[in-house]
């Protein structure tokens, strides 16, 4: 019999997994003036994490993930604007439900295809939503979106402060933590394992009798719901929503974040989002063109040489060291 194997140990919590959360809390006290930025980073992490579930684990390449981010963002925006529903946590749940429903409906039809057709279809779905949001100006504010939304206190205790984002930051952190717990559980479950199976070899997955389509649609739906939560957080934290949440730039951007961090691994989203947004924050304002140039070259290099992102590089280094130690 084989003793405790790598698989049997994998899901256990390791000491360093506490680090990102401790660091996030530390940032709250250390950089009180950068919490607005920090909140955006947390939202991006959540968004990238949701993409990781489909792209990294289930191997579904999508260019339209912003569709769900936008769906969530518009859900809370419209609820606040038209029904005066300002309670944030129920808003998140509603956003998750709406985005999840869209994910389920589109997943059921789109996931029949694969490859290029799927890529195009995800793109089209997003463009469709974007145009719908643009057209339904009475409901969505059209091109200008909905500025100046306000939300009531979180749990009736902590108000959203417009200037310092103190409660936004902690709120986003708490939501991210909860969603991360969900994703982590999923990824290490048998379901998560079968998703990686689908990514690695579809033919074989059919041959072991797995209901491949059902699994893919489920993963797509959960991922859509999580992206919806990220979108809702965006609207709530910033107090506005506009068409940019549904753009190709946002879809491509989150993909870049995830790839740079490393997909198919839980903490890739963290590393990618922090690295990307810090660099963008510092560089993009001072030298926007140089930022774009650097980003472009980085992407080319990553595509050619480092297919698993920053974490991937460390991973293969570790593997190499282990091998030579053996």
């Amino acid at each position: 019999m084989i003793a405790a194997t790598e698989l049997a140990r994998r899901h256990r919590l390791r000491w360093w997994e506490a680090l990102p959360w401790i660091a996030s809390l530390a940032c709250f006290f250390a950089f009180p003036n950068y919490l607005a930025f920090g909140t955006q980073v947390l939202i991006t992490i959540l968004f990238a994490l949701s993409l990781d579930l489909v792209l990294g684990y289930a191997g579904i390449v999508t260019l339209g993930h912003a569709a769900f981010f936008g769906a969530g963002a518009y859900t809370v925006g419209m609820m606040a604007m038209h029904w005066g529903w300002n309670e944030p946590i129920s808003g998140l749940i509603a956003a998750a439900l709406v985005a999840g429903a869209i994910g389920l409906a589109s997943g059921l039809v789109l996931l029949r295809t694969h490859g290029l057709a799927l890529l195009m279809l995800t793109l089209c779905t997003m463009a469709l939503l974007e145009q719908a949001a643009n057209m339904g100006a009475a409901w969505t504010g059209g091109f200008d979106g909905m500025p100046g939304l306000s939300f009531s206190k979180i749990l009736g205790l902590f108000g959203f402060d417009v200037l310092y984002y103190r409660s936004q930051y902690l709120y986003a952190l708490a939501v991210l933590f909860a969603c991360f717990a969900i994703v982590r559980t999923l990824v290490y479950s048998s379901f998560g394992q079968s998703l990686t199976g689908i990514r690695e070899n579809l033919l074989r997955m059919h041959a072991v009798g797995a209901p491949v389509r059902v699994r893919q649609v489920l993963a797509y739906t959960v991922s859509a719901a999580l992206a919806g939560v990220a979108g809702a957080l965006f609207t709530q934290a910033n107090g506005y929503v506009n068409l940019a949440v549904l753009s190709l730039e946002r879809s491509a951007g989150v993909m870049i974040v995830l790839i740079l961090g490393g997909y198919g691994r839980l903490y890739g989203a963290f590393v990618g989002a922090i690295a990307y947004m810090l660099l963008e924050h510092v560089l993009a304002k001072a030298y926007p063109t140089a930022w774009q140039l650097g980003l472009g070259i980085t992407l080319i290099v990553v595509a050619l040489f480092a297919r698993n992102g920053v974490i991937g590089i460390f991973d293969s280094l570790r593997r190499r060291i282990e091998r030579s130690a053996r």
Partner: peptide, 14 residues
């Protein structure tokens, strides 16, 4: 496809 997408997006940025 993913790698190809990345490469070409990077190329566009450049």
């Amino acid at each position: 496809e993913l790698d190809q997408v990345l490469l070409t997006i990077g190329l566009v940025f450049t």
